[in-house]
Design a binder for these strands. Structure first.
Length: 135
DNA sequence: ATTCTAACA
DNA sequence: TGTTAGGA
């Protein structure tokens, strides 16, 4: 659906995104540094977010609240392609299914880490004490 | 009035 | 993450 071009159209500045997501500008920019979102820029170097960017940030916010760190969030959202034109629609539908799988896999990974404890060479996907309430 | 980058009593 | 300086 050509609806995706609208969802990917750069529309709002960071100020509006802050109200839409209840995230601070600091957090929004920080997530961008970690490539969790890459908004468009205006001629004046100002960020412009699309509907897709906003929903992405909402997903990120949700995971952060659940105690998942950047590394973990990347694994959950990495399969989601940044944009999608008509040629990418089919691919995206496939990836959406993969995303759902990844989501359930996340719980297994979290539980696995909580039970088996971190083993050498493996990066922790959880952070803080919230992880203790995750069983 | 808003947003941007860089940096930390 | 918060906050602030200094500039666009």
């Amino acid at each position: 659906m050509n609806d995706d071009i609208r969802k990917n159209m750069a529309l709002f500045p960071i100020g509006i995104v802050m109200k839409l997501t209840d995230l601070t500008a600091r957090q929004i920019r920080y997530y961008e540094q970690h490539e969790l979102v890459m908004p468009a820029r205006t001629g004046g170097n100002q960020r412009l977010y699309s509907f897709n960017d906003v929903s992405r940030l909402l997903e990120i916010k949700d995971l952060i609240e659940k105690g998942v760190n950047i590394a973990g969030i990347k694994q959950v959202l990495h399969t989601v392609s940044q944009d999608s034109d008509e040629a990418t629609v089919i691919t995206e539908q496939t990836e959406n299914k993969r995303r759902e799988m990844t989501d359930s896999q996340l719980h297994k990974m979290l539980k696995q880490q909580l039970i088996n404890g971190k083993r050498p060479g493996q990066v922790s996907l959880i952070q803080g004490e919230l992880s203790r309430f995750f069983h």
